Computed example of a mutant assay.
Amino acid sequence: MLSPERLREDFSNSSVENTTAAQDWTQAYEAVRWIQLTMALLSVLGSGSIIVSVVLQRLSRRTELQPLLLLSVSDLLLALCWIIGASLYSRNHSAHTLCYHLHTVEQVLYMASFFYTLNYVFNLYRGIREQHYSCRDGYVQFSNRVSTAGKITAALSGLSPVLLMTPVFIQGSLSQCETNFSEPYRSDAIIKNV
């Protein structure tokens, strides 16, 4: 067992840096920007390929693919916002208001993508359950139209994020929340203390 004196000696001789001091995060921000751009391009390719294949094969009217199509569209819009954000982030200019509003739109699309994912999973579960019960009972009959509840759920999946983020957008614009975007990830209190 190590004695307390030995531990103090080991730690006093170590080359541990003070990580709470102000540091240059330029390389970290550059890496984050490239990661964001790469992920956005992969997301555009993935969701875009789903949209193109569904549209080219004229499958957009099929009830089991409509939730997937809505999810892919919301993911594509989110990825396009990421690309715009990454390009704005790489330029050092005073588009703070634009970046703030773009971030708000991204939050709306994040929530919409989440709700459309839940909608897609629920529709997938409902379709599998319907097929299971119809096969178990000995008849094969599948509904080929979207139910009213499915249409309402799809509409609410797109509208509820907009309704939830509207107060944030309005209050943020009135309070000029975008003014702190000049130093990303730093608050005014930290800047004054440095």
Rank of each mutant, 00 (worst) to 15 (best):
Q141G: 04
L98K: 04
I83H: 03
R91M: 01
N123T: 00
A189Y: 10
W34S: 08
V32C: 07
G85D: 13
V121C: 05
A31P: 00
Y120M: 12
N92Q: 13
D188R: 10
N119Y: 15
V44I: 15
M165Y: 15
N180G: 01
K151I: 07
I84M: 08
V140Y: 12
M39A: 11
E9D: 13
T179G: 01
D10Y: 10
V55N: 04
A31F: 04
Q171N: 09
N193V: 06
N144L: 08
M111G: 11
C81G: 07
Y110G: 02
C177G: 08
L88Q: 09
C177S: 13
S147D: 05
T166E: 01
A21P: 00
A21V: 13
W34T: 08
L159S: 12
A95K: 03
S147Q: 04
L76I: 02
Q66C: 01
S182H: 10
S175R: 14
H103W: 04
D10E: 14
R145G: 00
L68K: 02
Q66V: 11
S160E: 03
P161G: 08
N18K: 05
L76P: 03
A154D: 11
L102E: 04
S147Y: 01
S182N: 09
S113P: 01
R61G: 14
D188G: 02
T20P: 00
A154E: 11
F142Y: 06
A95H: 11
S74K: 06
L59R: 15
I83L: 15
F169L: 13
C81K: 01
H96G: 02
S143E: 14
Q141I: 06
R61Y: 06
L56S: 14
K192V: 06
E106N: 03
A31V: 05
L164N: 04
H132E: 07
N92V: 03
S14K: 01
N144E: 11
M39Q: 07
T38E: 02
C177P: 00
E130L: 07
